[in-house]
Design a protein around this nucleic acid. Structure first.
Lengths: 133, 133
DNA sequence: TTAAAGCTTGCCATGATGGTAAGGTCAAGC
DNA sequence: GCTTGACCTTACCATCATGGCAAGCTTTAA
């Protein structure tokens, strides 16, 4: 299977497959005489795994760890759970940050008249030096 | 005022002040004979404005627009409001994405025993090819 | 006078991904 | 057989905002 098919089958773009190979996340596959990469079914499984992990927001280094656990028959599910929990905490942190922005911004938008006049609480907020609780 | 003081006064790092200058977000300030940048109070105001806008998550191009509106006496608050609303929508989109990840991940973590055994719903989710609603 | 702190520019790195360019290869149709 | 188009290859550049480091100059304080 060439890289195009592998990309379509796994949901990972050809570009990213090459990238993952270059950073060592996936092993370098066999090549045809012409130099084309050829993928086996288990390579596709690995790519699918990566794709799903990316959908959940895991970073590439985390996915490296997950892949190692995946191919380890003696893994303890608590290790997987710990990594996932760590990522969950990170997601919560990011969501919290964005929601804090969202909250302030929404209030400012609500308070803004949105007319032809220049007066605007949003601008005032941005230019005000201090006292922003 | 040198760049260090300007950084401390505005909350924008010296590094970023130089960067903003290099991309044209702020005008190049006067220099001393030795080549040191010297900032005026209005420059600090501008930096404070940028800092606050970054805290709300506005992108640099958006901040460029906001700065233009800021220094425009004839601005209409509806223009500011429109830009802010656009950004709010973007925040909502990102929050939604993260929350979708969060939701799935939390369920998987909940279902995982977290013991010494290898069986793990998280791993199953990642390796399963399809049917992930 | 000397040492420390601060400034200068320039380059490199992040993280995950996209784009583009220049060229080689393969398969199908004529 | 030859052309065409789809596919592959590598290599480089771009994003976005920020940090770090290095080599060298300037200012300040002891």
């Amino acid at each position: 299977m060439n890289i195009g098919k592998a990309a379509a089958a796994s949901g990972v773009s050809a570009k990213m497959i090459r990238h993952y190979e270059s950073i060592g996340l996936i092993p370098a596959p066999a090549r045809t005489e012409a130099g084309y990469r050829t993928y086996q079914p288990q390579d596709i499984q690995r790519l699918v795994f990566i794709h799903h992990a990316r959908e959940l927001g895991f970073s590439i280094p985390q996915i490296g760890t997950l892949l190692a656990l995946w191919s380890n028959q003696n893994r303890a599910s608590q290790d997987v759970k710990a990594l996932a929990s760590q990522h969950l905490a990170e997601l919560d942190r990011k969501i919290g940050q964005l929601q804090a922005m969202r909250m302030t911004l929404e209030q400012l938008i609500y308070a803004c008249q949105g007319n032809q006049q220049p007066e605007c609480p949003i601008m005032e907020h941005l230019s005000t030096s201090g006292n922003r609780k």
